[in-house]
Amino acid sequence: MTLNSLFRNATAAAALLVAAATQAANDKVVIYNWSEYVPEGVLEEFTEETGIEVEYNTYESNEVMYSKIKIQNAKGYDVIVPSSYYISKMAREGLLAKLDHSKLPNMDHLYGTLLDKPYDPGNQYSLPYTWGSTGIGINTDDIDKNSITGWKDLWDSKWENSLLLTDDVREVFQMALAVQGHSANTRDPQEIKQAFELLKKLMPNVLTFNSDAPREPYMAGDVSLGMIWNGEVIMAQEEMPEIQYIYPKEGVILWVDSFAIPANAENKDAAHKFINFMMRPDIAVRTVEYTGYATANKTAIRQLDPETRGNPTIFPTWEVINRGEFQEDVGDEATALFNQYWEELKAGM
C-alpha cells in the first residue's frame, strides 16, 4: 500500500467515523440510573420500537451522580434519576433542563399525590419514576421479628459488629434524628450534633455499609439485621422468604426517585421519548414486578395482580406513609455539617 492510498483510506475512515458520530447524536440516549432499576429487556424493547440506541450507566449514591453531572457541566448523560431533594438542589444550580410536557403524554398516568411537590413545583424539571422507603431488614430465621419494632432497637449492644447500614449520609442521620424525635430535614447544628453523638454509639454495632445492593449481605448470611430498601427485600424474598421488612415505629425514611434531563444533554428529544416510554403503564407494571418498588403510575397499579398490590412491603399503608418523612434539600451549610460528621463516624470506627 502506498502512502498516498493509505492517506486516502484514513480520510475515508475518518469521514465514516464523523458520520457515525453525528448519526449517534440523533439516535442515542445515555441513561445514568441507580443499579438494578430497570427491568430486563425493557431497554432492548425501547431500542426496537424507536430505533434509539441506549447507553446505560449506573451509580449507587446521589452524591456520586451529582458530582459527575456537576463536573461534566450537565453534559454527557441524557436521563438521570435523582432522589427527591436532589431535584431541587440541581434545578437551583442550573443543572437540569426544563421538561417539555407536550412530549410526555404518558404523564397522565401518574399519581396526583406525587406531582407538584415542594422540591419541584409544577414538575418543571422532573417526573416521578418509583418511590419507596428505607426501613429495617431482618432475617427471621436468626432473629424474632417481634423483638424489633423501631430504629432504637438497633442500638442494643447485643448487635455488636453485626448490622448493615446504607452508605448514605442523609439516611443514616435520618434514622438517628427520628429516634430523637427530630425532623430529617433539620438545619439546626445542635440537633445534627445530637444525632451524631447518638450515631457514635451505634458504630460499634455496624459491620458494613452498603448502598450497592444491600440485600446481598443479608442473602449471603453475613448480616441478619440493619437498614434496607423495601424493594431489595422484595428481590431477596424470591429466593429467601425469611428476609423481611419492618416499618420502624419512629417513622420510615421515604423517597421518590424521579426522571430528569441534565441541562446540557445532547439528546434531549431521545431523552423525552425514553421517559415517556418508561411511564407507559405496561412498562411501569414490569418495573414494580422487577424492582419491588412502588410505582408512581396509577394506571399501572390497577393492572397489578392483587397479591403485589396488597403487599405492604411494596405499598405501605397511609398510616405508615404519614408517620414517615421525605428528605428535602437542607442547604449547603447543613449538608457540609452532615458530611463532616459522616466522615468522623466512618473514620472513627
Binding site: 449520609v169 457540609a336 466522615e343
Partner: peptide
C-alpha cells in the same frame, strides 16, 4: 477511602 469520599461524597 478518605480521598475517595472527599472527592465523591463530600465533594
Amino acid at each position: 477511602n478518605i480521598i475517595k469520599n472527599q472527592f465523591l461524597v463530600a465533594r
